Simulated scan of single mutants.
Amino acid sequence: MLIYNVTINIDDTVHDSWLDWMKEVHIPEVLATGKFMEARMTRVLVEEETGGTTYSIQYLSKDRETLEAYYKEDAPRLREDGQKLFANKFVAFRTELEVISEQKQASNSATEFLFTYGTLQDSPTQIAVFSRSLQGKDAVLPGHKIATELIAGLYPSVTRSDNASDSVQGKVYAISGMELLKADTYEGSAYHRKKVVLESGLRAWVYYGRSMG
């Protein structure tokens, strides 16, 4: 997971109109490209010697390939829109951040179980999606197998098997209902979620590829 950070100092003479435009137009348009999972806008609490107000906007990208696609396909047009409206009224610089580790107090509202077999088992991915690292248990999904066809040529999916002895090894996590919705956002439209019964008898959610489940 990568964070695309844009730091902007905006002139006081256009501050209010710029802030409205950022919140109501620009950030929604950036998210509408489908290249980012979420965005966060913060004000930098420092008095600038040169005046103005400084903000940091952080966009969460799934991977390097997706971020590079944004740079190539969307960034020039979106930056041009800002230049046309607020030319010479702001200074911006951009940085990339890699999520390494983040810890939060564990949620006490875990009401859902999620069986995973792919990237959601990776701690950096969990931190980016749920803002915490999950503690899971080994689990088995019987009557299923990993599909030979990859989603978008990159990502695995499970499918039901005609062979009852087939099974998929994975991990099961206890998460909250809100975290389950975050997982939906992460998996995207290429996957859909269904309830299954694990080998242990536990009922859990699992993500199938749209053409698989």
Rank of each mutant, 00 (worst) to 15 (best):
K182L: 15
R203L: 10
G34A: 09
V91E: 09
L31K: 01
E68G: 01
D162Y: 08
G51V: 05
Y155G: 06
E68I: 08
V6I: 15
K137P: 01
V25M: 08
D63R: 08
A147E: 07
Y117T: 09
M1V: 11
S101W: 09
T119W: 03
S176K: 01
R43P: 01
E80I: 07
I57K: 02
P142V: 07
T125R: 05
K182R: 15
G143I: 03
E68Y: 13
E98L: 10
I10D: 00
A139M: 06
P124C: 05
S165Q: 14
M37P: 01
D81N: 12
M41A: 13
Y70C: 05
F113E: 07
N108E: 12
A69R: 10
S123Q: 12
E73Q: 11
A139T: 08
Y173W: 03
Q121I: 07
F93M: 07
N88D: 15
G153P: 05
F93G: 06
Q83E: 14
S167P: 00
D74N: 10
H144A: 04
L19R: 09
R203Y: 07
T42V: 13
T13S: 15
G213F: 04
L134A: 02
V30L: 02
Q135C: 03
L19Q: 11
K35S: 13
G153A: 09
M37K: 08
S189Y: 06
S101A: 11
V91Y: 06
H15A: 09
Y186W: 09
Y55T: 05
Y71C: 00
L134E: 02
E38R: 12
T50E: 15
E49C: 07
K195M: 14
I127D: 00
D81W: 08
T125F: 00
V14Y: 04
G52P: 05
V168K: 01
R203G: 04
D166H: 09
G143P: 03
F86K: 11
T42M: 11
D16Q: 13
T95A: 12
I27S: 02
M212D: 11
E49F: 12
L97R: 04
F86G: 06
R193D: 05
F36T: 00
M212V: 06
L180G: 01
Y191R: 04
S17L: 12
L181G: 06
S109N: 12
T185E: 10
E112L: 08
F113D: 06
V158R: 02
L181Q: 15
H144C: 03
Q169G: 11
Y186D: 00
Y155T: 10
F113W: 11
D122S: 11
A174P: 02
I8R: 03
K195R: 14
L180D: 01
T95L: 13
P124G: 04
D12M: 10
S157C: 14
N5H: 06
L19M: 13
K182E: 15
S61G: 12
L97G: 01
A92I: 13
M212F: 13
D74I: 01
A87E: 11
I100L: 13
R94Y: 08
V196P: 00
